[in-house]
Write a protein that binds this DNA or RNA. Structure first.
Length: 422
RNA sequence: GGAGAGAUGGCUGAGUGGUCGAAAGCGCUCCCCUGCUAAGGGAGUAUACUCCAAAAGGGUAUCGAGGGUUCGAAUCCCUCUCUCUCCGCCA
Protein backbone atom coordinates (compact mmCIF):
# COMPACT_ATOMS: atom_id res chain seq x y z
CA UNK A 1 0.00 0.00 0.00
CA UNK A 2 1.28 3.43 -0.93
CA UNK A 3 0.95 6.43 1.33
CA UNK A 4 -2.09 8.43 0.31
CA UNK A 5 -0.20 11.63 1.04
CA UNK A 6 2.55 10.48 -1.29
CA UNK A 7 0.00 9.71 -3.99
CA UNK A 8 -1.59 13.12 -3.56
CA UNK A 9 1.65 14.97 -4.09
CA UNK A 10 3.11 12.61 -6.73
CA UNK A 11 0.06 11.83 -8.79
CA UNK A 12 1.80 11.61 -12.16
CA UNK A 13 4.72 9.51 -10.91
CA UNK A 14 2.35 6.99 -9.38
CA UNK A 15 0.29 6.86 -12.56
CA UNK A 16 3.33 6.33 -14.76
CA UNK A 17 4.63 3.62 -12.46
CA UNK A 18 1.29 1.88 -12.60
CA UNK A 19 1.25 1.90 -16.39
CA UNK A 20 4.87 0.77 -16.55
CA UNK A 21 4.00 -2.19 -14.41
CA UNK A 22 1.51 -3.25 -17.04
CA UNK A 23 -1.74 -2.13 -15.46
CA UNK A 24 -4.26 -1.34 -18.21
CA UNK A 25 -5.16 2.05 -16.71
CA UNK A 26 -4.09 4.35 -13.94
CA UNK A 27 -7.55 5.71 -13.27
CA UNK A 28 -7.48 4.35 -9.74
CA UNK A 29 -5.02 7.11 -8.86
CA UNK A 30 -7.40 9.93 -9.73
CA UNK A 31 -10.28 8.10 -8.12
CA UNK A 32 -8.45 7.47 -4.88
CA UNK A 33 -7.47 11.14 -4.60
CA UNK A 34 -11.07 12.15 -5.12
CA UNK A 35 -12.29 9.67 -2.52
CA UNK A 36 -9.66 10.85 -0.10
CA UNK A 37 -10.79 14.44 -0.45
CA UNK A 38 -14.34 13.46 0.43
CA UNK A 39 -13.06 11.31 3.25
CA UNK A 40 -11.04 14.14 4.77
CA UNK A 41 -13.94 16.51 4.50
CA UNK A 42 -16.15 14.07 6.36
CA UNK A 43 -13.54 13.44 9.03
CA UNK A 44 -13.27 17.15 9.70
CA UNK A 45 -17.01 17.58 9.82
CA UNK A 46 -17.51 14.65 12.17
CA UNK A 47 -14.68 15.87 14.37
CA UNK A 48 -16.35 19.24 14.77
CA UNK A 49 -19.69 17.71 15.65
CA UNK A 50 -18.13 15.32 18.12
CA UNK A 51 -16.30 18.19 19.76
CA UNK A 52 -19.62 19.88 20.24
CA UNK A 53 -21.27 16.77 21.58
CA UNK A 54 -18.37 16.15 23.93
CA UNK A 55 -18.44 19.63 25.37
CA UNK A 56 -22.17 19.34 26.00
CA UNK A 57 -21.73 16.03 27.73
CA UNK A 58 -19.13 17.65 29.94
CA UNK A 59 -21.48 20.50 30.76
CA UNK A 60 -24.21 18.06 31.62
CA UNK A 61 -21.85 16.28 33.94
CA UNK A 62 -21.05 19.54 35.72
CA UNK A 63 -24.73 20.55 35.99
CA UNK A 64 -25.63 17.15 37.38
CA UNK A 65 -22.87 17.50 39.92
CA UNK A 66 -24.33 20.79 41.02
CA UNK A 67 -27.80 19.25 41.23
CA UNK A 68 -29.20 21.44 38.45
CA UNK A 69 -31.34 18.71 36.96
CA UNK A 70 -33.67 20.92 34.96
CA UNK A 71 -30.91 22.61 33.01
CA UNK A 72 -29.24 19.30 32.41
CA UNK A 73 -32.42 17.83 30.98
CA UNK A 74 -32.70 20.70 28.55
CA UNK A 75 -29.21 20.16 27.32
CA UNK A 76 -29.76 16.46 26.91
CA UNK A 77 -32.77 17.14 24.74
CA UNK A 78 -30.78 19.49 22.52
CA UNK A 79 -28.00 17.00 22.07
CA UNK A 80 -30.15 14.45 20.27
CA UNK A 81 -29.99 16.31 17.00
CA UNK A 82 -26.21 16.46 16.91
CA UNK A 83 -26.02 12.77 17.71
CA UNK A 84 -28.27 11.92 14.80
CA UNK A 85 -26.17 13.98 12.43
CA UNK A 86 -22.99 12.30 13.63
CA UNK A 87 -24.43 8.84 13.11
CA UNK A 88 -25.49 9.72 9.62
CA UNK A 89 -22.10 11.10 8.66
CA UNK A 90 -20.34 8.16 10.22
CA UNK A 91 -22.21 5.84 7.91
CA UNK A 92 -21.07 7.78 4.86
CA UNK A 93 -17.55 7.90 6.20
CA UNK A 94 -17.53 4.15 6.57
CA UNK A 95 -18.59 3.65 2.98
CA UNK A 96 -16.16 6.20 1.58
CA UNK A 97 -13.30 4.81 3.60
CA UNK A 98 -13.89 1.28 2.31
CA UNK A 99 -14.04 2.55 -1.25
CA UNK A 100 -10.88 4.57 -0.78
CA UNK A 101 -8.98 1.66 0.74
CA UNK A 102 -10.11 -0.76 -1.95
CA UNK A 103 -8.69 1.62 -4.54
CA UNK A 104 -5.55 2.10 -2.50
CA UNK A 105 -4.93 -1.63 -2.48
CA UNK A 106 -5.18 -1.66 -6.25
CA UNK A 107 -2.31 0.74 -6.76
CA UNK A 108 1.06 -1.01 -7.13
CA UNK A 109 4.34 0.13 -5.67
CA UNK A 110 6.24 2.62 -7.80
CA UNK A 111 9.28 1.11 -9.58
CA UNK A 112 12.67 2.57 -8.75
CA UNK A 113 14.22 4.91 -11.32
CA UNK A 114 16.97 2.39 -12.04
CA UNK A 115 14.49 -0.26 -13.18
CA UNK A 116 14.24 -0.74 -16.96
CA UNK A 117 10.81 -0.09 -18.40
CA UNK A 118 9.43 -3.17 -20.14
CA UNK A 119 6.48 -5.45 -20.56
CA UNK A 120 7.57 -9.10 -20.34
CA UNK A 121 10.46 -11.27 -19.21
CA UNK A 122 12.04 -10.53 -22.62
CA UNK A 123 12.68 -7.02 -21.39
CA UNK A 124 14.61 -8.06 -18.31
CA UNK A 125 18.25 -7.04 -18.32
CA UNK A 126 21.13 -9.43 -17.69
CA UNK A 127 22.79 -7.59 -14.86
CA UNK A 128 25.76 -9.91 -14.42
CA UNK A 129 26.90 -13.47 -15.05
CA UNK A 130 29.33 -15.78 -13.29
CA UNK A 131 30.96 -19.06 -14.33
CA UNK A 132 31.04 -20.97 -17.57
CA UNK A 133 27.73 -22.74 -18.43
CA UNK A 134 28.55 -26.41 -19.17
CA UNK A 135 27.42 -27.68 -22.54
CA UNK A 136 28.41 -31.39 -22.78
CA UNK A 137 25.84 -33.56 -24.53
CA UNK A 138 26.23 -36.52 -22.19
CA UNK A 139 24.82 -34.69 -19.20
CA UNK A 140 21.46 -36.07 -18.14
CA UNK A 141 18.59 -33.96 -16.87
CA UNK A 142 18.44 -34.29 -13.11
CA UNK A 143 15.30 -36.40 -13.15
CA UNK A 144 17.01 -39.10 -15.15
CA UNK A 145 20.00 -39.35 -12.88
CA UNK A 146 17.74 -39.23 -9.83
CA UNK A 147 15.59 -41.97 -11.27
CA UNK A 148 18.60 -44.22 -11.95
CA UNK A 149 19.77 -43.73 -8.40
CA UNK A 150 16.29 -44.03 -6.87
CA UNK A 151 16.67 -40.64 -5.25
CA UNK A 152 13.36 -39.11 -6.25
CA UNK A 153 10.00 -40.82 -6.07
CA UNK A 154 7.28 -38.93 -7.89
CA UNK A 155 4.93 -41.89 -8.18
CA UNK A 156 4.73 -42.51 -4.47
CA UNK A 157 4.54 -38.76 -3.92
CA UNK A 158 1.44 -38.67 -6.09
CA UNK A 159 -0.03 -41.65 -4.29
CA UNK A 160 0.54 -40.17 -0.86
CA UNK A 161 -0.14 -36.49 -1.52
CA UNK A 162 -0.49 -35.50 -5.15
CA UNK A 163 1.43 -34.37 -8.22
CA UNK A 164 4.24 -32.03 -7.33
CA UNK A 165 4.90 -33.57 -3.92
CA UNK A 166 7.85 -35.92 -4.49
CA UNK A 167 9.71 -38.00 -1.96
CA UNK A 168 13.44 -37.39 -1.72
CA UNK A 169 15.16 -40.61 -0.84
CA UNK A 170 18.55 -41.52 0.57
CA UNK A 171 21.50 -39.45 -0.57
CA UNK A 172 19.30 -36.82 -2.17
CA UNK A 173 17.35 -36.28 1.03
CA UNK A 174 20.68 -35.89 2.77
CA UNK A 175 21.89 -33.49 0.10
CA UNK A 176 18.89 -31.27 0.73
CA UNK A 177 19.49 -31.32 4.43
CA UNK A 178 23.13 -30.45 3.80
CA UNK A 179 22.15 -27.48 1.66
CA UNK A 180 19.73 -26.23 4.29
CA UNK A 181 22.49 -26.40 6.89
CA UNK A 182 24.98 -24.76 4.60
CA UNK A 183 22.63 -21.92 3.70
CA UNK A 184 21.61 -21.26 7.29
CA UNK A 185 25.18 -21.37 8.55
CA UNK A 186 26.29 -18.91 5.90
CA UNK A 187 23.42 -16.57 6.67
CA UNK A 188 24.16 -16.58 10.39
CA UNK A 189 27.81 -15.85 9.61
CA UNK A 190 26.63 -12.83 7.65
CA UNK A 191 24.66 -11.41 10.57
CA UNK A 192 21.23 -12.84 9.96
CA UNK A 193 19.36 -14.06 13.02
CA UNK A 194 17.99 -17.54 12.49
CA UNK A 195 14.33 -18.03 13.24
CA UNK A 196 11.85 -20.87 12.87
CA UNK A 197 8.46 -19.42 12.00
CA UNK A 198 5.01 -21.00 11.89
CA UNK A 199 4.23 -22.76 8.63
CA UNK A 200 0.66 -21.54 8.65
CA UNK A 201 -0.47 -17.95 8.92
CA UNK A 202 -3.74 -16.14 9.45
CA UNK A 203 -5.47 -13.74 7.15
CA UNK A 204 -3.97 -10.61 8.65
CA UNK A 205 -0.48 -11.89 7.96
CA UNK A 206 -1.31 -12.83 4.39
CA UNK A 207 -2.64 -9.34 3.90
CA UNK A 208 0.39 -7.80 5.52
CA UNK A 209 2.81 -9.11 2.93
CA UNK A 210 0.37 -8.65 0.07
CA UNK A 211 -0.69 -12.22 -0.73
CA UNK A 212 -4.26 -11.06 -0.27
CA UNK A 213 -6.15 -9.50 -1.77
CA UNK A 214 -4.85 -10.51 -5.19
CA UNK A 215 -2.90 -13.71 -4.95
CA UNK A 216 -4.86 -15.89 -2.55
CA UNK A 217 -5.11 -18.48 -5.32
CA UNK A 218 -1.44 -19.24 -4.96
CA UNK A 219 -1.84 -20.47 -1.40
CA UNK A 220 -3.20 -23.67 0.08
CA UNK A 221 -5.78 -23.14 2.77
CA UNK A 222 -6.63 -25.15 5.83
CA UNK A 223 -10.39 -25.60 5.86
CA UNK A 224 -12.11 -24.80 9.11
CA UNK A 225 -9.20 -23.01 10.72
CA UNK A 226 -8.79 -20.05 8.44
CA UNK A 227 -5.10 -20.68 7.92
CA UNK A 228 -2.97 -20.34 4.83
CA UNK A 229 -0.02 -22.63 4.24
CA UNK A 230 2.89 -20.27 3.74
CA UNK A 231 4.01 -19.84 0.13
CA UNK A 232 7.32 -18.49 1.43
CA UNK A 233 8.90 -17.76 4.82
CA UNK A 234 8.69 -14.11 3.85
CA UNK A 235 5.10 -14.11 5.08
CA UNK A 236 5.57 -15.18 8.72
CA UNK A 237 9.01 -13.60 9.09
CA UNK A 238 8.04 -10.16 7.79
CA UNK A 239 4.89 -10.26 9.92
CA UNK A 240 7.05 -11.05 12.96
CA UNK A 241 7.22 -7.33 13.68
CA UNK A 242 3.79 -6.37 12.39
CA UNK A 243 2.26 -3.48 14.39
CA UNK A 244 5.52 -2.83 16.16
CA UNK A 245 7.90 0.05 16.56
CA UNK A 246 11.55 -0.95 16.32
CA UNK A 247 14.05 1.16 18.22
CA UNK A 248 16.72 2.89 16.13
CA UNK A 249 19.49 1.16 18.05
CA UNK A 250 18.16 -2.24 17.00
CA UNK A 251 18.18 -1.38 13.31
CA UNK A 252 18.82 -2.82 10.83
CA UNK A 253 17.21 -6.16 11.63
CA UNK A 254 18.17 -9.21 9.57
CA UNK A 255 16.48 -12.61 9.74
CA UNK A 256 16.98 -15.90 7.99
CA UNK A 257 14.58 -18.79 8.13
CA UNK A 258 14.35 -22.23 6.63
CA UNK A 259 10.83 -23.41 5.82
CA UNK A 260 8.99 -25.59 3.40
CA UNK A 261 6.92 -23.51 0.98
CA UNK A 262 3.59 -24.49 -0.50
CA UNK A 263 2.28 -23.12 -3.75
CA UNK A 264 -0.70 -24.24 -5.76
CA UNK A 265 0.94 -23.20 -9.04
CA UNK A 266 -2.35 -23.37 -10.87
CA UNK A 267 -1.96 -23.39 -14.63
CA UNK A 268 1.65 -24.53 -14.84
CA UNK A 269 2.46 -27.14 -17.46
CA UNK A 270 5.03 -28.73 -19.77
CA UNK A 271 8.79 -28.73 -19.44
CA UNK A 272 8.47 -26.09 -16.75
CA UNK A 273 7.22 -28.67 -14.30
CA UNK A 274 9.47 -31.62 -15.19
CA UNK A 275 11.41 -33.04 -12.29
CA UNK A 276 12.29 -30.51 -9.65
CA UNK A 277 11.65 -27.47 -11.80
CA UNK A 278 8.34 -26.59 -10.21
CA UNK A 279 6.77 -28.24 -7.21
CA UNK A 280 3.82 -27.71 -4.93
CA UNK A 281 6.04 -28.10 -1.89
CA UNK A 282 9.67 -27.08 -1.76
CA UNK A 283 12.27 -26.00 0.74
CA UNK A 284 13.81 -22.59 0.91
CA UNK A 285 15.98 -20.48 3.13
CA UNK A 286 14.62 -16.96 3.11
CA UNK A 287 16.33 -13.73 4.11
CA UNK A 288 14.39 -10.73 5.40
CA UNK A 289 15.68 -7.26 6.23
CA UNK A 290 14.07 -4.40 8.11
CA UNK A 291 16.02 -1.24 7.36
CA UNK A 292 16.10 2.54 7.50
CA UNK A 293 14.47 4.06 4.40
CA UNK A 294 17.76 5.70 3.40
CA UNK A 295 19.53 2.35 3.43
CA UNK A 296 17.23 0.14 1.40
CA UNK A 297 18.87 0.75 -1.99
CA UNK A 298 22.26 -0.31 -0.73
CA UNK A 299 20.78 -3.14 1.28
CA UNK A 300 19.24 -4.62 -1.86
CA UNK A 301 22.65 -4.70 -3.56
CA UNK A 302 24.20 -6.40 -0.53
CA UNK A 303 21.37 -8.90 -0.43
CA UNK A 304 21.93 -9.71 -4.09
CA UNK A 305 25.67 -10.03 -3.60
CA UNK A 306 25.14 -12.32 -0.65
CA UNK A 307 22.78 -14.62 -2.58
CA UNK A 308 25.26 -14.69 -5.46
CA UNK A 309 28.05 -15.65 -3.09
CA UNK A 310 26.19 -18.85 -2.22
CA UNK A 311 26.15 -19.97 -5.85
CA UNK A 312 29.79 -19.06 -6.15
CA UNK A 313 30.66 -21.17 -3.13
CA UNK A 314 28.74 -24.06 -4.66
CA UNK A 315 30.58 -23.34 -7.90
CA UNK A 316 27.40 -23.23 -9.96
CA UNK A 317 27.37 -20.91 -12.97
CA UNK A 318 24.58 -18.38 -12.82
CA UNK A 319 23.36 -15.09 -14.16
CA UNK A 320 21.60 -12.22 -12.46
CA UNK A 321 18.66 -10.46 -14.07
CA UNK A 322 17.40 -7.01 -13.27
CA UNK A 323 13.66 -7.36 -13.67
CA UNK A 324 11.86 -4.85 -15.87
CA UNK A 325 8.83 -2.90 -14.68
CA UNK A 326 6.34 -5.24 -16.32
CA UNK A 327 7.80 -8.43 -14.88
CA UNK A 328 8.58 -7.42 -11.33
CA UNK A 329 5.35 -7.70 -9.42
CA UNK A 330 2.92 -5.49 -7.60
CA UNK A 331 4.71 -4.84 -4.34
CA UNK A 332 8.34 -4.29 -5.32
CA UNK A 333 10.27 -1.18 -6.22
CA UNK A 334 13.16 -3.20 -7.62
CA UNK A 335 13.93 -6.86 -8.02
CA UNK A 336 16.82 -9.09 -9.06
CA UNK A 337 16.43 -12.70 -10.05
CA UNK A 338 19.31 -15.16 -9.82
CA UNK A 339 19.21 -17.98 -12.33
CA UNK A 340 21.43 -21.01 -12.05
CA UNK A 341 22.58 -22.93 -15.11
CA UNK A 342 21.01 -26.34 -15.64
CA UNK A 343 23.40 -28.15 -17.99
CA UNK A 344 21.20 -31.22 -18.36
CA UNK A 345 18.27 -29.12 -19.54
CA UNK A 346 20.33 -26.39 -21.15
CA UNK A 347 18.31 -23.67 -19.52
CA UNK A 348 18.42 -21.20 -16.67
CA UNK A 349 16.49 -21.88 -13.47
CA UNK A 350 15.44 -19.17 -11.04
CA UNK A 351 16.78 -19.92 -7.59
CA UNK A 352 16.56 -16.57 -5.88
CA UNK A 353 14.61 -13.39 -6.08
CA UNK A 354 15.88 -10.37 -4.17
CA UNK A 355 13.43 -7.52 -3.75
CA UNK A 356 13.13 -4.11 -2.24
CA UNK A 357 9.60 -3.30 -1.12
CA UNK A 358 10.31 0.20 0.10
CA UNK A 359 7.64 1.12 2.63
CA UNK A 360 4.90 -0.74 0.72
CA UNK A 361 4.66 -3.83 2.90
CA UNK A 362 5.63 -2.02 6.07
CA UNK A 363 2.80 0.47 5.73
CA UNK A 364 0.22 -2.28 5.48
CA UNK A 365 1.68 -3.83 8.59
CA UNK A 366 2.20 -0.62 10.54
CA UNK A 367 5.82 -1.66 10.83
CA UNK A 368 7.71 1.32 12.10
CA UNK A 369 10.91 2.45 13.72
CA UNK A 370 11.84 5.41 15.88
CA UNK A 371 14.03 7.68 13.80
CA UNK A 372 16.86 10.05 14.72
CA UNK A 373 14.40 12.66 15.94
CA UNK A 374 12.52 10.16 18.06
CA UNK A 375 9.59 10.18 15.65
CA UNK A 376 8.00 6.98 14.44
CA UNK A 377 8.42 6.35 10.75
CA UNK A 378 7.49 3.53 8.39
CA UNK A 379 10.61 1.48 7.69
CA UNK A 380 11.63 -0.42 4.57
CA UNK A 381 11.53 -4.15 4.05
CA UNK A 382 13.52 -6.36 1.72
CA UNK A 383 13.74 -10.02 1.17
CA UNK A 384 15.56 -12.57 -0.92
CA UNK A 385 15.95 -16.29 -1.23
CA UNK A 386 19.16 -17.66 0.07
CA UNK A 387 18.38 -20.00 -1.69
CA UNK A 388 15.43 -22.06 -2.97
CA UNK A 389 16.44 -25.71 -2.76
CA UNK A 390 14.96 -27.86 -5.54
CA UNK A 391 16.45 -26.03 -8.48
CA UNK A 392 19.80 -25.77 -6.78
CA UNK A 393 19.57 -29.51 -6.24
CA UNK A 394 18.65 -29.96 -9.90
CA UNK A 395 21.61 -27.91 -10.98
CA UNK A 396 23.96 -29.82 -8.68
CA UNK A 397 22.68 -33.13 -10.02
CA UNK A 398 23.43 -32.00 -13.53
CA UNK A 399 26.61 -30.00 -12.93
CA UNK A 400 28.32 -32.45 -10.61
CA UNK A 401 27.36 -35.69 -12.35
CA UNK A 402 30.22 -37.65 -13.85
CA UNK A 403 30.22 -39.28 -17.24
CA UNK A 404 30.12 -42.65 -15.47
CA UNK A 405 26.85 -41.73 -13.78
CA UNK A 406 27.95 -40.80 -10.27
CA UNK A 407 27.52 -37.59 -8.40
CA UNK A 408 30.40 -35.65 -6.94
CA UNK A 409 29.63 -33.53 -3.91
CA UNK A 410 30.34 -29.79 -4.04
CA UNK A 411 33.28 -29.09 -1.80
CA UNK A 412 31.44 -26.88 0.68
CA UNK A 413 28.87 -29.62 1.24
CA UNK A 414 31.31 -32.47 1.89
CA UNK A 415 31.43 -31.80 5.64
CA UNK A 416 27.64 -32.06 5.78
CA UNK A 417 27.41 -35.09 3.48
CA UNK A 418 30.27 -37.01 5.02
CA UNK A 419 31.45 -38.12 1.60
CA UNK A 420 32.67 -36.58 -1.64
CA UNK A 421 30.80 -38.84 -4.04
CA UNK A 422 27.57 -40.80 -4.15
C1' G B 1 -11.60 -30.84 25.01
C1' G B 2 -13.61 -29.33 30.46
C1' A B 3 -13.39 -25.52 34.64
C1' G B 4 -11.75 -20.85 36.32
C1' A B 5 -8.97 -15.97 36.17
C1' G B 6 -7.39 -12.04 33.39
C1' A B 7 -6.17 -8.33 29.12
C1' U B 8 -4.97 -0.45 31.06
C1' G B 9 0.70 3.93 28.33
C1' G B 10 8.18 1.48 27.40
C1' C B 11 7.47 -1.52 32.21
C1' U B 12 4.90 -2.22 37.20
C1' G B 13 0.18 -0.87 38.54
C1' A B 14 -4.42 2.38 40.28
C1' G B 15 -8.98 3.42 38.46
C1' U B 16 -16.31 0.14 38.35
C1' G B 17 -20.75 5.69 34.69
C1' G B 18 -19.11 12.39 34.51
C1' U B 19 -13.85 17.95 33.22
C1' C B 20 -9.76 10.23 32.51
C1' G B 21 -5.60 10.06 27.50
C1' A B 22 -6.02 7.95 32.08
C1' A B 23 -3.13 8.34 39.49
C1' A B 24 1.42 6.60 41.38
C1' G B 25 6.08 4.32 40.86
C1' C B 26 10.05 2.71 37.60
C1' G B 27 12.60 3.71 33.19
C1' C B 28 14.06 7.45 29.60
C1' U B 29 15.17 12.85 27.93
C1' C B 30 16.36 17.92 29.12
C1' C B 31 17.46 21.70 32.79
C1' C B 32 19.06 23.31 37.80
C1' C B 33 21.85 22.30 42.15
C1' U B 34 25.97 19.63 43.83
C1' G B 35 33.36 19.41 43.28
C1' C B 36 32.76 13.71 42.35
C1' U B 37 31.29 8.55 40.41
C1' A B 38 25.88 9.23 45.52
C1' A B 39 21.83 12.36 46.39
C1' G B 40 18.24 16.35 45.60
C1' G B 41 14.88 19.78 42.77
C1' G B 42 12.12 21.09 38.23
C1' A B 43 10.11 20.12 33.33
C1' G B 44 8.98 16.65 29.71
C1' U B 45 8.00 11.61 28.03
C1' A B 46 1.81 7.09 23.62
C1' U B 47 -0.22 6.31 18.70
C1' A B 48 -3.10 7.45 14.42
C1' C B 49 -5.91 10.73 11.68
C1' U B 50 -7.32 15.66 10.70
C1' C B 51 -7.48 21.38 10.48
C1' C B 52 -3.71 25.28 9.52
C1' A B 53 0.86 27.35 3.55
C1' A B 54 4.27 25.78 7.62
C1' A B 55 5.58 26.23 12.73
C1' A B 56 2.93 27.29 17.04
C1' G B 57 -1.58 25.54 18.16
C1' G B 58 -6.64 23.31 17.66
C1' G B 59 -9.91 18.95 17.04
C1' U B 60 -11.20 13.65 16.85
C1' A B 61 -10.27 8.57 17.91
C1' U B 62 -7.73 4.78 20.73
C1' C B 63 -7.54 1.51 28.16
C1' G B 64 -7.16 -6.69 23.74
C1' A B 65 -10.86 -6.45 19.06
C1' G B 66 -15.83 -5.59 17.30
C1' G B 67 -20.85 -4.25 18.44
C1' G B 68 -24.59 -2.24 22.04
C1' U B 69 -26.82 0.80 26.27
C1' U B 70 -26.21 6.20 27.75
C1' C B 71 -26.36 13.23 27.15
C1' G B 72 -21.61 10.87 28.83
C1' A B 73 -18.04 4.21 29.22
C1' A B 74 -11.42 2.12 30.80
C1' U B 75 -15.77 1.50 34.03
C1' C B 76 -22.42 -1.59 32.32
C1' C B 77 -24.27 -5.49 28.39
C1' C B 78 -23.23 -8.93 24.05
C1' U B 79 -19.78 -11.44 20.65
C1' C B 80 -14.86 -12.68 19.46
C1' U B 81 -9.47 -13.13 20.16
C1' C B 82 -5.44 -13.87 23.18
C1' U B 83 -2.81 -14.95 27.92
C1' C B 84 -2.49 -17.50 32.63
C1' U B 85 -3.96 -21.57 36.30
C1' C B 86 -6.09 -26.48 37.15
C1' C B 87 -7.91 -31.14 34.82
C1' G B 88 -7.83 -34.25 30.41
C1' C B 89 -5.04 -35.65 25.98
C1' C B 90 -0.41 -35.81 23.66
C1' A B 91 5.06 -35.56 19.93
Amino acid sequence: MLDITFIRSNREIVKQGMLNKGEPTADAVDEVIKKDETWRQLVTEIGTLRAESNSRAREIGILMGQGKKEEAQNLIRETGEVKEKIKELEKSLDVIQKERDTLLYQIPNVPDESVPVGKTDEDNVVFSAWGEPLQQEWRLPHWELASEKNWLDFERGSKVAGAGFPFYVGALARLQRSLINFFLNEAVLHGFTEIQPPYFVNEDSARGTGQIPDKEDMMYTVPGDGFFAIPTAEVPVTNFHRDEIIEMKDMPVYYCAYTPCWRREAGSYGADVRGLNRLHQFDKVELVKFVHPDESDGELERLREYAESLLQKLDLPYRTLLMCTGDMGFTQTKKYDLEVWSPGQKRWLEVSSCSNFGSFQARRMQLRFRNEKGKTEILHTLNGSGLALPRVVASILETYQTESGDLKIPEVLIPFMGTDRV
